[in-house]
């Protein structure tokens, strides 16, 4: 296939960026989207131009490192991660625009790489269960009903990629946070910190400069792990209960 790529190039965190056009030929359907960019980069290096910086690590759809906005859609046209998107989802002659996640809480570092440490700080604010090493009771001591375990698992599937933020018209991080709150809040082990957790995580989220949620649902549609919108609702409920003095 022959394609025209329009890629966001930005020299550094404080540099101005712009969309630059690169034609590319000989793209195979079996290539992953990132392999197509690898090929472009090899061509750029051969020409003496600096290759395009983009993040990826596992290339298996699980580490959450990759993430590009392709033709205006976070992770591109399929519901998957960018690394698992293949070129057979495009056709010969297509023009493809490639941009980084855009959110003030995810500042661009270079080209298509962004800084997502704000997510880590949200987890630091309470996205854990305090369990000191070595002090744990036998794993079989607490039974967890399968339905709760399944729902916790669903929240735990989040890979922290940030596509929800990239896709949300408000640049809100509610789906990411809701997923964690649901994961921990559904388990018996997570109960003691349940209400304090949600309050401090939401405070941190707001302090990081993410937008508010107006229930638009775009986040869930872009989420490669299919985290459902109802985790946001669950978080809202816990938040209200916390504010009403439940702990």
């Amino acid at each position: 296939m022959k394609l025209t790529l329009k890629i966001w190039r930005q020299g550094g965190p404080s540099a101005d960026g712009e969309m630059v056009t690169y034609p590319i030929e000989g793209v195979s359907e079996d290539m992953s989207f990132l392999e197509m960019l690898d090929v472009l980069n090899e061509e750029l290096i051969a020409k003496g131009e600096e290759p395009v910086a983009f993040d990826s690590d596992c290339r298996e759809g699980i580490c959450g490192m990759c993430g590009l906005v392709i033709n205006g859609q976070a992770h591109g046209p399929e519901v998957t991660t960018t690394c698992q998107l293949h070129m057979r989802s495009f056709s010969d002659g297509d023009e493809i625009s490639i941009e980084p996640w855009r959110a003030e809480a995810f500042p661009v570092l270079k080209d298509l790489c962004v800084d997502r440490t704000s997510f880590d700080r949200i987890i630091q604010a309470g996205g854990y269960i305090s369990a000191n090493t070595g002090a744990a009771p036998d794993a079989a001591a607490t039974l967890v009903p399968k339905d709760d375990a399944d729902r916790a698992f669903m929240g735990a599937e989040c890979i922290g990629c940030g596509a929800c933020v990239a896709a949300c018209p408000n640049a809100s991080g509610m789906l990411f946070m809701g997923a964690k709150v649901t994961h921990l809040g559904e388990l018996p082990q997570g109960q003691p910190e349940r209400y304090a957790r949600v309050v401090s995580m939401v405070d941190q989220h707001d302090a990081e400069g993410f937008g508010g949620c107006t229930n638009l649902g775009e986040c869930s549609r872009a989420c490669p792990k299919g985290i459902p919108l109802n985790v946001i609702s669950q978080m809202n409920r816990d938040l209200q209960r916390a504010k009403l003095g439940k702990h």
Binding site: I129, A131, A140, L143, A152, F153, H183, L187, Q189
Partner: peptide
């Protein structure tokens, strides 16, 4: 034991056992 205490959602049977 440690992982379960941290909330790692291992697969469970219907009775709630791991």
């Amino acid at each position: 034991d440690q992982c379960v205490a941290q909330g790692v959602p291992f697969a469970r049977e219907y009775g709630g056992m791991l």
